[in-house]
């Protein structure tokens, strides 16, 4: 059974370059691109106005940008190799720079990044396959975990909402789940053979979604490491997966500019949307707000950010 989502608004030429990352907060959407600035939009108004620009955050462009689910914290990673931590006072406050990850980190070592829900931990993947975790609430933001893998480029990483697990997806198709409590590898799950470009824990930290060049989205049980489902339907490489707040739906974006919405219960695709003809780098649900229907945002190579909402009824 399909679901209807309507285009609510499109910000054309939001960035003068490919939009590589969208990172939502309750009332804001942060966006990053091949340009040097981070844009911040107000998602409570119908025209989604630009309310702040973090100028020259990363001069060579920004490849990753993430926000903490429950805290006013964001992190960005740029092509020059730096990772910057940002924060804001309150939901509607101004964002400003908190610091940079330096402990045990050579510029360029970090590729993908993820923040824990409370914003206290940052996980990163790297080109040499290492997966690291930093404690952002401690003095000097020290590195507290170092996980070794077999050395394949870590294209993506995620931290579970409860902070217990780190997951990484690699270019050779392998997927690892690490237990942050014991600092040990929890599962090396049956991978996808092809590069894995996105991993995401479900809100309850029970499932891990992973996807990439294999064009399927695989769901794994975090505790057992068993693969429990395959979502098939994308025609292009899957670049991004994101769970809705309730864990009922999964939003995915692909290189052939398609976004798909999957109902987890039935494991079916319930909606497909096109976003131009360029790679769709990022698709994110906006946090659920009481009295508002479910919304999501798409950003990609066409430089636009499009907002959709679930059709009433």
């Amino acid at each position: 059974m399909s679901k209807q989502y309507l285009t609510l608004h499109t910000l054309t030429s939001a960035h003068p370059s490919d939009i590589f990352a969208l990172a939502p907060k309750k009332t804001r959407l942060l966006s990053a691109s091949g340009a040097s600035s981070i844009n911040i939009y107000d998602t409570t108004q119908s025209d989604f106005p630009l309310v702040q620009t973090l100028e020259n955050a990363h001069p060579l462009g920004i490849h990753h940008l993430v926000t903490a689910r429950e805290a006013q914290r964001a992190a960005s990673a740029g092509f020059e190799g730096k990772v910057k931590i940002w924060s804001a006072e309150g939901e509607n406050g101004e964002w400003s720079l908190d610091g940079e990850i330096v402990d045990g980190n050579k510029p360029g070592d970090v590729w993908a990044i993820a923040l824990s829900a409370d914003g206290n931990y940052l996980a990163s993947s790297s080109i040499n396959g290492k997966v690291n975790v930093w404690a952002l609430d401690q003095q000097g933001m020290p590195k507290i975990r170092e996980y070794e893998t077999k050395g394949s480029f870590g294209l993506c990483v995620d931290l579970s909402a409860d902070g217990r697990f780190t997951a990484s997806g690699h270019e050779n198709g392998s997927i690892y789940i690490f237990n942050n409590d014991t600092s040990r590898l929890s599962h090396s799950v049956a991978g996808l053979v092809h590069p894995v470009r996105s991993v995401a824990f479900s809100p309850a930290s029970k499932l891990l979604a992973a996807a990439g060049d294999a064009r399927i989205i695989a769901l794994y049980d975090v505790n057992s490491g068993e693969q429990v489902a395959n979502l098939t339907g994308h025609g292009g490489w899957v670049l991004s997966v994101d769970w809705s707040d309730t864990g009922e739906y999964l939003l995915s974006a692909s290189h052939d500019s398609k976004a798909k919405i999957w109902r987890i219960e039935t494991r079916t695709c319930v909606a497909t949307h096109s976003h131009g003809d360029k790679p769709l780098w990022s698709a994110k649900w906006l946090p659920k707000v009481a009295g508002r229907s479910e919304m999501f945002a798409l950003g990609g190579g066409n430089q636009n950010i499009a907002f959709y909402r679930e059709a009433a009824g």
């Binding site: 003068p16 370059s17 490919d18 590589f20 091949g34 490849h63 290189h255 790679p279």
Partner: peptide, 18 residues
């Protein structure tokens, strides 16, 4: 980003991304 070859920049970034 303001230079004469923004397409080169874009293509280099896409190579790095993928």
């Amino acid at each position: 980003e303001d230079g004469p070859e923004t397409d080169w920049r874009r293509q280099l970034q896409r190579m790095l991304m993928l």
